[in-house]
């Protein structure tokens, strides 16, 4: 039976963020592909890449990329899982795994970017 549970947290921020990060990713991913794969002038050698990694602009760019990409992807993954009926324990486990992997990948990524 339907049981209205009252307002326990709006989905609005998540919904809006998913859309904002989607738009950002569109820009960031295209730029990334252009710079790294399509445009030889931006330099694809080890030295050129290393130089970019030291550039504060590209550092910021990569930090944005990993943050936005992880949030968007994992939020989407969670959305897919939520379409399935799950026991609370399973749901909690999957949610936990997504959060933990998110944090882990973010720390790993940020650590890598900042080590240059």
């Amino acid at each position: 039976m339907y049981n209205h549970t009252g307002s326990r947290g709006s989905g609005a921020p998540g919904w809006v963020l998913q859309r904002i990060t989607g738009v950002l990713l569109f820009v960031v991913v295209l730029t990334h592909f252009f710079v790294m794969h399509a445009n030889p002038a931006s330099g694809h050698t080890y030295a050129a890449v290393l130089a970019r990694m030291h550039d504060p602009f590209w550092k910021m760019f990569d930090l944005t990329f990993i943050t936005v990409g992880l949030w968007h992807g994992l939020n989407g993954t969670w959305g897919v899982f939520r379409d399935y009926k799950m026991k609370p324990a399973v749901s909690l486990t999957i949610y936990g795994a997504i959060i933990l992997s998110g944090i882990a990948f973010w720390v790993l990524g940020v650590n890598t970017i900042l080590s240059f």
């Binding site: 549970t5 709006s10 989905g11 609005a12 959305g79």
Partner: peptide, 14 residues
């Protein structure tokens, strides 16, 4: 809007 602004409300629509 309060009624539909829940995880089981509008946000369950994918």
């Amino acid at each position: 809007l309060d009624v539909v602004d829940t995880p089981d409300g509008a946000w369950r629509c994918h």
